[in-house]
Design a protein around this nucleic acid. Structure first.
Lengths: 111, 111
DNA sequence: CTGAATCCACCTGGATACTG
DNA sequence: CAGTATCCAGGTGGATTCAG
């Protein structure tokens, strides 16, 4: 369980799931890379592999040239996305409060 | 936002919040260390500091000997715990499915 | 009891180059 | 396009020691 948290709670996984949901559930490698700002190609490959292994995404290779690979959220992946929803909303709602808390804390620490 | 995810989505933070909720909302350092299995003293201190800075916990030092320090979830911390709830539930519900998906994947990969 | 500080092995993750 | 492979800097986090 502990280990599972570290896995699904992974920052990149969450962002990839979000990207896939925003993108309609099916996206190609490069499109995901564009959607998830800041991710390196290596991390994306790694994250995607892991998510595939965990049954969160389905990887489909179309044997054409140039290669064409689709990533599709599975039911489980989608349900995880929904579970994350609460955290997304929380983050959006408390973003300012947290930044203020940090400033206050730093001010106290500095003074 | 991206950065916030990495912060609040941190594995230890989640576990500490969970421990605090289970423990009634107020706990001492050592009690948390016992509740959060596997965390080192350094990580606990670090996590707690960060959470204090983010306004998720309130740290109260009782000037006695031996020292007595209480950590209490703030409203914001509690609300984050509730936001996590969905993910906890999801994890519990899909734990087996994920393990099966992994076995299947590994079997395919191995064969 | 609660922490700070130090040392250090390990892993993460970015940059780059190469393949089919 | 979609990776794989390699190198490497930097951060993570455990163990240990010291202090109030």
């Amino acid at each position: 369980m502990n280990d599972l948290l570290g896995r699904v709670g992974d920052k990149w996984s969450a962002l990839v799931i979000d990207a896939l949901i925003e993108g309609g559930g099916v996206m190609r490698f490069t499109r995901i890379a564009e959607a998830v700002t800041g991710i390196s190609q290596k991390m994306l490959t790694q994250t995607l592999r892991q998510m595939e292994r965990d049954g969160l995404v389905m990887r489909t290779v179309h044997p054409v040239i140039p290669p064409h690979v689709d990533y599709k959220l599975t039911k489980m992946g989608l349900s995880l996305g929904k579970a994350f929803c609460g955290v997304w909303i929380w983050a959006g709602k408390h973003l300012e409060a947290i930044e203020k808390a940090r400033r206050d804390f730093d001010a106290r620490a500095g003074g």
